[in-house]
């Protein structure tokens, strides 16, 4: 990483000053077996945005764990859903968490949504050498609050592995199971009664859990949702008031209702 000038409130500048860049780009002769594969998605519903992720991590055809949280609260008004290599993705989440809070505390104001969206794009670009090697690709989703409207409006963004960012109008999905999810979301968006944007919280949670159940039918790398084995998803909601977590107990209740 090139040496950056110290910028007020910029945590990456502070890391550079201490010679502690978050991503080091030594080339590897042999690619290790990667832990990856995922289904994460987000869609607008009546109260805001629901962001969901399965909890499975795989390495090749081996299931490493079914207890990974892929939807991460970055701060009180931002969510990140990670798809790709967890080692890199979790480090990106940690950099963003520290950077956003560092800026807010040092500059006495929160970072704007465009700046947050670009901060993630910058990390993806910094990770380009790992992406090109094929051992560190991360394709995340990001949700944040746009404070230029009143009340603040939740927005969803998706990225390509090189860092290009796109705002999603109704929904976005990423990971190996995302094809299935996108098809269903597209169908529901056009023909559903209710459409995702018209769903209340209960309907949106049920819909999200069933989407993951369906994705896991077609993608072995996506962990399913099974109340009988107490296997649930990571679900978080972003409203104009901030982030809320839908607990496993709540998911169980919503599925029953």
């Amino acid at each position: 990483m090139s040496q950056r000038a110290l910028i007020a409130g910029d945590f990456l500048s502070l890391l550079d000053e201490h010679k502690l860049p978050p991503f080091r780009h030594e080339l590897s002769g042999a690619a290790p077996v990667q832990t990856q594969a995922t289904t994460v998605f987000a869609f607008h519903f009546a109260d805001g945005i629901l962001m969901a992720g399965d909890r499975r991590a795989t390495a090749g055809n081996v299931i490493v764990t079914d207890r990974v949280d892929k939807v991460i609260e970055i701060d009180a008004t931002s969510l990140l859903a990670i798809a790709g290599v967890p080692a890199t993705a979790f480090e990106m989440a940690r950099v963003l968490q520290t950077s956003f809070e560092y800026y807010r505390r040092s500059q006495l104001q929160a970072l704007s949504l465009p700046a947050k969206v670009r901060a993630l794009a910058r990390l993806l670009r910094d990770n380009l050498p790992m992406t090109m090697q094929g051992i560190g690709v991360v394709v995340p989703l990001f949700a944040g609050l746009d404070h230029s409207t009143s009340p603040a409006s939740p927005r969803v963004y998706f990225y390509d592995p090189l860092g290009a960012q796109f705002q999603a109008v109704g929904y976005a999905a990423s990971g190996s199971g995302s094809g299935t999810i996108r098809s269903i979301l597209s169908f529901q968006e056009q023909h559903g009664k209710p459409r995702p944007s018209q769903m209340n919280l209960s309907q949106a949670v049920q819909f999200a859990l069933r989407l993951l159940m369906t994705a896991s039918e077609f993608d072995s790398a996506t962990g399913g949702v099974n109340p009988a084995t107490e296997t649930f998803a990571t679900l978080k909601v972003l409203k104009s008031t901030g982030v809320e977590t839908i607990s496993e107990e709540q998911q169980k209740q919503f599925l029953k209702s």
Partner: peptide, 14 residues
């Protein structure tokens, strides 16, 4: 204040 915030966040991150 700035010195304390810098030190706390560096400690937290590392």
């Amino acid at each position: 204040r700035q010195a304390a915030i810098d030190a706390a966040h560096m400690e937290s991150f590392t």
